[in-house]
Design a binder for these strands. Structure first.
Lengths: 226, 226
DNA sequence: CAACATTTGTGATTTATATCACATTTGGAT
DNA sequence: ATCCAAATGTGATATAAATCACAAATGTTG
């Protein structure tokens, strides 16, 4: 666990950019950097939440156990805080975070994180902005999810991964079909079928886990029409 | 529009309890109390967001236009802030708030609200706690909604209204069947049918808009089994 | 590389729920 | 009270998607 100086960290959060050198020292002595390989659990539902996790690099899934199966709530790309809601909304983790690519995470003692909120208004404000933006995105997805049907949801998710996570029309799909089902709220078989259809219609190209979006315009149409 | 003194307000938010008398004066000169009747729109999706709304009394639905119909995202009971996410997450309202009972709302100039966050850490912290708790509740509902089937979702919603909003097993249902459908993500016909079934099985009693939960234990079972 | 477990694709069938259609009730306005 | 619009209940039918079943492909471990 090599530890750099937080103040020199090149991937500071919008909130952390407002910390002064004294606060960075506090941050440094009360945080620890840990690396995770693809598939490793960063924090787990049901455990006590004592840290805020700052995702420095990598991609993570946020997931929760539902009545019948796992539900993937969001896919998060660095840089981003993970688990602020579980730290300040409930003592016990209400959801898990698992690396879906190799990641690097800084765990920050939540008491010190709280103190930054108390004493540094700009820090607090950026945290609030972040929470607000997430809530809005969640609401959009929530609304889609309850009104679109499966092809629309899958198109939407592919576009989201392409635009928000990979910034590329060609990417290596990070989830199994079954997990993708848990994400959009459908079965693995339906995921397979819809992806096959999209591939047959030459809207996407499928090579195992590789996905290449050939006709973004058509995907968007499918996503919108539901 | 009668205006009391904010500092004397008996229904302060957890955040506002941390304001000092100077800040209360600022709050008072930069906020306005407005009353809404059942059915009136408090703020509307697409409009510019210039205020944070503080719901002093009453009940409100938060809703958003989806691809095919309206989606009711949450039912909110006073006291609570409305629309913090739209104020700090996006300049334009991403969702609407409509009174479903007579309500009283204080609109607070968002610039001054922001200043409180900057200058008063305890205020900011309470706002963050609030946002976090909401996010956790949303995730729970989100997960349910994508895995349970209609009877389970309706049972869950009835229990939620009874426990979280009315604190009573007997209450006057505030939504039409169609709106209730928009809330759980189903059609008005399915809502009718499930409510009839529950009524036939003597689990609830239906008298028009009045709902009386007779067998909470069975409702909980239906809610859990999905 | 052989053996085994996991993941995936695809057809057949079942099922929950949407949609359609229409009768009935309720509530508000004049 | 009367009229009209909105909301509701309920049967019949259509349909999207789940489930079941099994084969094929892929990945993993000794």
């Amino acid at each position: 666990m090599l530890h750099h100086h937080c103040i020199d960290c090149q991937i500071k959060s919008a909130a952390a950019k407002n910390l002064n050198s004294e606060e960075f020292e506090i941050l440094e002595t009360n945080s620890a950097q840990v690396n995770f390989k693809k598939g490793e659990v960063i924090f787990k539902e049901g455990a006590l939440s004592l840290n805020v996790a700052y995702l420095r690099s990598g991609i993570v899934k946020i997931h929760m156990l539902g009545p019948s199966r796992e539900k993937i709530l969001r896919i998060v790309k660095a840089p981003s805080y993970l688990g602020i809601p579980i730290t300040f909304g409930n003592k016990i983790n209400q959801y898990s975070a698992t690396a879906i690519e190799d990641t690097s995470v800084c765990f920050i003692d939540s008491n010190y994180f709280r103190n930054f909120i108390y004493s540094n208004g700009k820090f607090a404000y950026e945290i609030i902005v972040d929470l607000c933006k997430n809530e809005l995105k969640d609401y959009q997805r929530y609304t889609s999810q309850s009104q679109k049907q499966i092809p629309g949801l899958i198109a939407e998710s592919l576009l989201c991964l392409s635009e928000q996570i990979y910034d590329n029309t060609h990417f290596n799909f990070p989830l199994t079909r079954s997990e993708f089902g848990d994400m959009v709220g459908t079965s693995r078989e339906s995921v397979s079928r819809v992806l096959s259809d999209l591939s047959n219609e030459k809207i996407i190209e499928l090579k195992g886990k590789e996905i290449n979006i050939l006709r973004k315009d058509l995907l968007e149409k499918i996503s919108k029409s539901g």
